[in-house]
Structures are given as structure tokens and as C-alpha cells.
Design a protein around this nucleic acid. Sequence first.
DNA 1: CTGAAAGCGCTTACAG
DNA 2: CTGAAAGCGCTTACAG
Lengths: 349, 349
Amino acid sequence: MTKKISIKDIAKELNISITTVSFVINGKSEEMGISLATTNRVNELIIEWGFNPNSAARILRTGKSKTIGLIIEDIGNYFFGNIAKIIEVEASKKGYNVFFSSTDNSDIRAKDLIQKMKNSSVDGMIITPTKGLADDIKLLEKQNVPFVLLDRLIPDIDANHVILNNYKGAFDLTNHLIKNGYQQIGFISIFSDLSQMDEREKGFVDALAKDGKTILDETMLKVRFDLSGKEIVFAIEKYLKKNPQLDALFFATNYLGVYGLEALQNANKKIPKDIAVVSFDDNDLFRLYTPSITVAAQPIHDIAVEAINLLLNIIHDGDKKNNPEGIVLDPELIERNSSPKKKTMLMVD
Amino acid sequence: MTKKISIKDIAKELNISITTVSFVINGKSEEMGISLATTNRVNELIIEWGFNPNSAARILRTGKSKTIGLIIEDIGNYFFGNIAKIIEVEASKKGYNVFFSSTDNSDIRAKDLIQKMKNSSVDGMIITPTKGLADDIKLLEKQNVPFVLLDRLIPDIDANHVILNNYKGAFDLTNHLIKNGYQQIGFISIFSDLSQMDEREKGFVDALAKDGKTILDETMLKVRFDLSGKEIVFAIEKYLKKNPQLDALFFATNYLGVYGLEALQNANKKIPKDIAVVSFDDNDLFRLYTPSITVAAQPIHDIAVEAINLLLNIIHDGDKKNNPEGIVLDPELIERNSSPKKKTMLMVD
DNA sequence: CTGAAAGCGCTTACAG
DNA sequence: CTGAAAGCGCTTACAG
């Protein structure tokens, strides 16, 4: 990069002090009583020279970067990609930049990213925490760094957060299946200690319990998080073979649902004739698949907007930090063709 | 944020100079002949205190940020989300952070982002240019800012770039349809001056021409970029009604294909019985749809890796800037069930 | 109405 | 083997 222009150059050219230039740049001319003539001359030269203040210097001096850090699980994933997008748009409306990074659910990467964000003097962070992040989150609180937890919680830590009512989503989805006459519902989830997966399982179990049903261990499949797509498909196929009695399937996440459809195709099971299907999270595939898939859709837009607004509030109002606020949003049950009222049996409605 | 630790604090605590501390931090102890004893004492205290150098100060001093800027069209989109993800991973392997931002194909936003990135002292940028970005790109060249253009070119500008061979992708896809006996192929694209859309159209037209075919204006649908999903679906439905003679459809982008499937469902056209379908870009829906959709898939991983490696080369080797390199990657034709050999007519193969 | 100067936290010649 | 000091480009009390 060729020699950059600094406010010193502007000041010299115009024969004024850098103080004056700085005031004009920061829109404080009036407040500081800089003459209109001077203000205009400075502004004109800035445009002519294409000057832009060096942000490293600004950050070093003020400690504020007008940047927020967004630490999510995976920027390549539909849910998080859209969250990131909306947060970016909302933040930029308020004059903030966003610094993204993906953890891939690795504690090490998450810790590293939090550290990097702190060093980069972000004004605050939105974080989807990984499991072992409790200490780092506590440190953030101790250090008075504004932050909000997104999508999931850390057990025993009371922090600002925006999450989905995962319990309700799973409960509603399960209840919908029961009401439509399904009796043998398989639950397919990932092996994880993430709070939201627990909640989904609880919602599922409670909805069954409400009708005096319990789930058998065999009909509960949990796949390891780190399996490849092919391995997941294979695991589900095996599970289907072992449980021919199932008349409905509950997929606890978006991508499990996608792999599940592949497994069902391979197993030559027709939806909903042979087996009904519901899934957490919506996507294009579920909407356009034949048959379309019943889902509990996350209000992505609201989640993102609530998170960025909450963070900005915390940044601007120090008090908020001491009095954490939890925002819990309800998913939307979208009934589609993969789980119609069961016709093959008598029903008491 | 409570008072931060600086190298001054470390130096004071250990009764040494900040120079020494700085050398240790930057791994120059040996080179600078700092005693092992001192080095160890510094390193221990750094860990004990959890010290991390302030990056704003570092950037201000060195002009290097170890950060690269990634300016893409839309982080929420499948293609770009995955590109971003891979670039992030590759960059972090080399010790670089990535600063993302989406342009939404707006010139104004793109210009603004380039400016912001420059102010943030990124060491280089990867950019998917919008249409009116020629001047800004030229300025980047003049200012010696390392950058590479991704996914599309700017007419008349010779710059480092990594793009897809859009021509070949469209040609192959069209040729595949012709070889399988389709005669009346509709082309559905967006109204755009983006170079890659031109290339796709050329590939399509040339593949037809090779067989002495030409495309009629009526069978070429271009939708406006800023239409909503519903409007696009509606436009395609109208087009289908107006062109009942079509026996195949070529969708020039991923999302047009997705909306196209919705339109075909609404129009009650069965694939491939009533009409065959091929699309540019792959995704989950195309892979799992019934029938699965034939596509020209972009080698997302390779595109991302080539782009970041090229940029890093340019950053480390100033010469590269003066001798722009263009990397053109071939898409992969994935033949699936939406475009089988046409059975209803005699064919000379 | 405007300016001189300190200082944010680093890195790096220069000196010994 | 180590230190004192300049300087990166800003912002902001302080002074007039």
C-alpha cells in the first residue's frame, strides 16, 4: 500500500492543527465551535484526497472498535449462515461491523476465537457456546465484556441469551404426531450435551408421557456428532431395519432430517404411507420434498434481531450486564404432508 | 473491560525492559540473544496473567493485521456460506483471520465494505465484485492492495482471479440434454450483467448451435434479480403456461432451480415425464429430490482453497500483483434422474 | 474559534 | 545480553 494520508497531512495542507481536523472528521465541528469555512475546507479536502481515518489508531486511542464479534458453530450451515446475514444487516444499520468465525463445535477453537476477538477490541460478542466454555464465559463476565449467548446455554451460568424454546418445539411436533394417530414414534438425535438437544428430548418424552406412553431405548437413536454424512445415513438405515414397527420418525435436527430422507429412500420406505416424518428446523428440501415435511421452524429472523439488539443494548447500557436478560422464542409448527392423519386405524378423536 | 495488562506491566513486574518482553512475545528471543532464563520468566508470567498483546497497537505499528477481508454476495447463501467456511479454515491454518461481509450485490455496499476493509488494515481481500466496481478495483491495484476476484470478473480489468468455467458447465449441461434427445429446451436465467451469467448463456447457445439449433426469444426467461421468491415462482409458472412445447428446462442458477421445482409442482408438470430439468450448482434439494436433479456442480472446496492460496501468495510475494494470475476451475456434470434418455421418440445415436 | 501536547500499546532501529 | 526512545495515527483534556 503506497503512503497513506493521515490527518497530519490534511492539517499541514490547510495550515490548521490536527485537532481541528479531528473534530471535523468526528462531526464535532459545531459542538467545538469550528467555523463553517474551516469545516467545509476540511471536508472538501477529505473527499478530494479520499482520506479515511486509520482505524487501528482510533481503536488504540479510544478502546472502541464499532465492531462486534459473532462466534457461531458453522457459517456454512443454513441456520447460522442466515443468522449471520441478518445480524450483519442489523448491525450495519447501527454503524457496527461484524467479525464472524466458526467454532465447528470445538472448545479449543471457540476459546481461541474469544481470545482473538478480545485482542481485536471488539465492543461485544454474540456467541453460540460449545460445551466446555463455562470458564471462558465467566471470565468474559468478570472482565465486563458485553456478550450474549445464542441458540444454547451453558449450565449454571446466568448470562444474557437468546434461545429457542426447544422444549415446546419438540413437544408440539410430537403431540402433532400423536394427535394424528401415530403410535410408534422413533426419535433420532445426536449424541451431545448441548442444552438444546436435551430440551428437545425432554419435549418429546413429555409429550409421550402425557398420553401414558414411554419410549423404548431401542427406538431412540443417537448418532455421534462427528460422523460423516454417509455414516449417518448408514446408521439410520440400520436403525430402520432393526425397528420395523415404527410408524413415525422424529428428527431432532435439520441435517439429521436431510440424511434421514436419504436413508428412507435407500430403505425404500415411503412417506407417509410406510412411515411419517417430522423434523426440527425448516429448509428448502423439507418445503419442496415430495411429500413436504412437517417441521418445527425456528424464527431465524427474530432470533438474529433479538440477539443483536440485546447486545447493542448491553454495550450502550452497562447496567444490563449485571442483570442478565433471557429471550426465549417459540418455534412455529408447520404441518405438511409427511405426517397426515393416520387412515389405516380406528381413531377416537 | 477492566484494566488490561500491557507489556509495560510485564516488564515492570520482571524488572526488565519492554523491548525484551516484546522480543520474547514475538519469538525472537534466540535471534536477539535473550537469555533462556529471562525468556522463561517472561513466558511464565504471560501465561499466569493471561496476557495478550493488543492488536490495534500492533497493527498501528506494523501496518500488518494478519487478517484478510472476504467480500461476498451473501453469507446466507449455500455456495458463499461454504466458500466462507473453507476460506476461514485454510486462512487460520496459515495464521490469518478472516473478516467477512456481504454485498447483496449492491455497488454501494461493496464500495463501502472495500473502504472499511482498507481502513481496518486487512492484509488483502477476496472479493466477489458487483457490476459497478471497476473504479474501486483499479484503485486497489494502484494502491498496491493485494486482492483476488472470486466467482466473477470485471470487464476489461486484468486482475488475479479464481472463477468457474461457466461456459463449459452450461455447454456440458445443454449437450447432455441434447444427447438424451431433448429438442425444445427452455433457458431460465436472471437479468444481470454479471460475467458468469453471460458465460452460461453463451455455453447454452453454443451447445445448441453446434447442432444447428437456435433458441427462440420466447423460450428464454430472464427474471429480475430483486424479485421475491413468490414472484419468481409465479413468473416461471406463467412462462411454463406460455411454452407448453418445452421438453426440458435449463436453470442457470441454484436458487432459480429451487423456485423452478416449486413452479413445476404448482403447474403439475412431472419430471422427467412431462419435462426434463437441469440446473447449475448442486445442493441438498437437487440431490434428494424425487427425481434427483442433474446439475453442473461447482467445485466449492477447490474454488475456496485456490482463492485463499493465491491471495496469500500475493501477500507474501509482491511481484505477483503485477502479473495477474487467473485460475479457472471446471464444474462437474452430475447426471441424475431428472434428464434421462428420452424414450418417447426415435433416436439416432 | 483553534493549537500544542500527552498518550493509547506496541515494534524496532540504535546504542552500549 | 539488554535498555531508552522514537513513532505508528489518532482523540481529547487543557490552555488561550
